[in-house]
Amino acid sequence: LELTLRVGDKTWHFKDVDEEFVRHLEELLKRGAHEREIEEIIREWLR
């Protein structure tokens, strides 16, 4: 999967994204996660 995600003024483009990561992001967005929380999840995933 490829994913382009825009949060606030930042845009990330990922290739070979894990479906579990996408589901986790979807859940965060559904519950109205704040920009900082989403950025933290992305940084963790990139490690």
Rank of each mutant, 00 (worst) to 15 (best):
A33C: 09
E27L: 09
R47Y: 10
E39D: 10
E2K: 06
L1F: 14
R47K: 14
R31C: 05
E40T: 09
K10M: 09
E40L: 10
D18R: 04
F14I: 07
E39Q: 07
I42D: 00
E20H: 12
L29T: 08
R31M: 13
K15G: 03
A33M: 11
L46N: 06
R23Y: 08
K30I: 10
I38S: 01
E35R: 05
F14Q: 00
E2L: 05
G32K: 00
E2R: 05
L3S: 03
D9P: 03
K10V: 12
G8L: 03
I42W: 11
L5V: 15
L29D: 03
E2S: 11
G32S: 05
E2T: 10
D18I: 02
D16L: 15
E44W: 03
H24T: 13
G32Y: 04
H34P: 15
W12K: 00
E19D: 07
A33L: 09
F21E: 03
R47M: 12
I42C: 00
R6N: 15
L5C: 03
L3R: 02
R6M: 15
K10P: 00
I38C: 02
R31P: 02
W12L: 03
G8A: 04
W45N: 03
L25C: 10
R31G: 12
L28I: 07
L3W: 04
L25F: 01
V22R: 04
R36E: 14
K15V: 07
I42T: 01
V7F: 06
E39R: 04
H34D: 14
I38H: 01
L3E: 02
L25T: 02
T4V: 13
L46W: 06
V17E: 15
L1E: 13
T11A: 04
F21K: 05
V7A: 03
E26S: 07
H34W: 05
R31N: 15
E20Y: 12
A33Q: 09
F14W: 01
K30V: 10
L28T: 07
R36K: 14
V22P: 01
L5S: 00
E40Q: 11
L29A: 10
R43D: 11
R43K: 13
D18F: 03
V22L: 04
H13W: 06
R6H: 15
W45S: 04
H13F: 11
L5Y: 02
E40P: 03
L29V: 15
T11E: 12
G8Y: 02
D16K: 15
E44C: 07
E2W: 07
A33G: 08
R43N: 15
E26A: 10
D9H: 06
V17S: 14
E26L: 11
I38R: 01
T4L: 09
I41Q: 08
E40M: 10
E35A: 09
E37I: 07
L5A: 01
E19Y: 14
H13E: 05
L25P: 00
E2D: 15
L5F: 12
V17T: 15
D18L: 01
E35Y: 11
H24V: 10
W45F: 12
E39I: 07
I38T: 01
L1Y: 15
E35D: 11
W45E: 04
V7Y: 07
R23H: 10
H13C: 06
L5Q: 00
I38V: 11
E39G: 05
E35I: 12
E19C: 03
E19P: 11
E44D: 12
E40V: 09
W45Y: 15
H13R: 07
H13K: 08
H34Q: 14
D9N: 10
R43C: 03
L25H: 00
H13G: 02
V7Q: 01
L1P: 12
F14C: 01
R43I: 13
T4D: 06
A33W: 12
L1T: 12
F14G: 00
V17W: 04
F21G: 02
L1I: 11
E39M: 08
H13I: 11
K10E: 06
T4P: 03
T4K: 07
D18N: 09
E39C: 04
R36I: 12
R36A: 14
I41R: 09
L29R: 04
I41V: 15
L5D: 01
G32C: 04
D18C: 03
E26W: 08
H13V: 14
L5R: 00
R43M: 14
V22I: 07
E19T: 12
E26F: 08
E44K: 07
E37F: 07
A33K: 08
H24R: 11
L29K: 04
L5M: 05
E2H: 09
E20V: 14
W12I: 03
D18Q: 07
K30W: 08
D16I: 12
I38K: 02
R47P: 10
L25Q: 00
R23Q: 09
R23E: 07
R36F: 11
E37V: 07
I38W: 03
L29H: 05
D18T: 12
F21C: 01
E39V: 08
W12Y: 15
D9M: 05
T11G: 01
W45R: 03
E40W: 08
F21D: 04
R43S: 11
V22T: 03
L1H: 15
H24Y: 12
R47E: 14
V7N: 02
E2G: 07
K30N: 10
L29Q: 10
E2I: 09
E2Y: 04
K10Y: 10
E2M: 05
R31Y: 12
G8K: 02
R23A: 10
F21R: 03
E27C: 06
R31T: 13
L3Y: 10
F21W: 08
V22E: 02
R6D: 12
H24I: 12
L25N: 00
L29S: 06
W45I: 04
F14D: 00
L28V: 08
H13M: 05
H24D: 08
I42A: 02
R47F: 11
E20W: 14
L28G: 03
D9L: 04
D16Q: 13
K30S: 13
T11Q: 06
R31D: 13
L1Q: 14
D18S: 11
E44T: 03
F14N: 00
V17C: 04
R6P: 04
L3C: 01
I38P: 01
L3G: 01
K10I: 11
L28D: 02
L28M: 12
L5E: 00
G32A: 05
W45L: 06
L1M: 11
V22C: 02
W45A: 06
V22S: 02
V17K: 13
V7H: 03
E40F: 09
I41T: 11
I42R: 00
L25M: 09
R23W: 08
L1D: 12
E26N: 09
G8V: 01
T4G: 02
V7S: 02
W12P: 00
T4S: 10
L25K: 00
